[in-house]
């Protein structure tokens, strides 16, 4: 049974206002039947330090990734995970996390691959909740297990693979990494050198829009007009565009995927989770370096056939 939408006026201007809730709304709805609050952080211990009352924890690394294949969990594991967390197929799930909801947006995107219908983000995430002095608890809820159906993940609609990116050339790509990663000065995000690639630079023709530009200083999303100035204005996206976003492993670009899809209303935006750790290490994948996007052409082959 879906829980009411947050009708806060700030959200009304977005394409899909039902995808966001405010801290005020959440505080007033905690404990409501049908609502499950989920914390998903980059730092795996933050939840244990204190979390929003009733919230359960889902970790991007240990819960949502397959431990052997470079892939996400399959339908069976996803069903088991959600069932254990007390989430039914018709639950309203509100996700929140640290660092502008970076990892919460990644979890939301994965929930969406499995077609979980009512999944929302807490605008401002963990940081805003704490900044406002709202209640935290270290008491971990013990939800009764529920049945979550085994659903096959849809990898075609919201997710792009390397081959999809190659055949997408000519359509807009958004690179959401730091400028240094985009130009090719470095292969990894500052402070995250453990997820590097063999080559540096960006996918030819991709526009550079670092992901966190979509967030205001208080970790909430910027207004629609501000977002349009960035994505339609600077990055040159136009209505009806078919867009692929990428970063390093697909987490930062999930945040931008959320902005383009749910706040600005672009349809069919796909997130390339292989991202730079795959592209920058793939043999003969075309690469552009420097501040210019460069042009997307077929992979160049300098070796005689």
């Amino acid at each position: 049974m879906p829980v009411d939408n947050d009708t806060a006026s700030k959200f009304a201007e977005y394409a899909h206002p039902e995808r966001l809730v405010s801290t005020e709304w959440l505080a007033a709805h905690l404990g409501e039947p049908g609502l499950v609050v989920v914390e998903s952080d980059e730092d795996i211990l933050l939840y244990e330090m204190g979390h929003i009352p009733t919230a359960v924890k889902i970790d991007w690394h240990t819960d949502l990734n397959d431990h052997v294949l470079r892939d996400f969990v399959q339908g069976k594991e996803f069903a088991r995970l959600l069932g254990e967390k007390g989430i039914s197929r018709d639950s309203t799930v509100v996700l929140y996390g640290d660092k502008n909801n970076w990892w919460a947006a990644y979890a939301l995107w994965i929930f969406s691959l499995f077609g979980h219908e009512d999944v929302r983000l807490l605008d401002g995430g963990r940081d805003l909740w704490i900044a406002e002095g709202r209640e935290l608890t270290t008491e971990a809820p013990a939800p009764a297990s529920v049945e979550y159906p085994v659903v096959e993940r849809d990898d075609a609609t919201l997710r792009a693979f390397k081959e999809d990116v190659l055949s997408h050339f000519g359509n807009p790509l958004i690179d959401v990494r730091s400028v240094e990663e985009y130009t090719g000065e470095r292969t990894e995000i500052p402070g995250y050198p453990s997820e590097g690639a063999l080559r540096a630079g960006h996918i030819p023709s991709a526009a550079s829009v670092p992901w966190a530009r979509a967030a205001a200083p208080d970790a909430t999303f910027k207004s629609r007009a501000e977002l349009e100035a960035i994505y339609q204005g600077e990055a040159g996206l136009a209505e009806g565009d078919d867009v692929i976003t990428y970063c390093r492993i697909g987490e930062r670009s999930s945040h931008t995927w959320f902005v383009l899809t749910h706040l600005l209303g672009f349809e069919g935006v796909r997130n390339y989770d292989g991202s730079w750790t795959e592209w920058g290490s793939a043999v003969r994948a075309p690469i552009a370096q420097g501040a210019e996007p460069g042009s997307a052409t077929a992979p160049h082959t300098s070796v005689a056939k």
Partner: peptide, 14 residues
Amino acid sequence: TQAVSPLRIRGMTG
């Protein structure tokens, strides 16, 4: 390694 993930453990190795 299992509880925290190998990737995060690398920070401690550093």
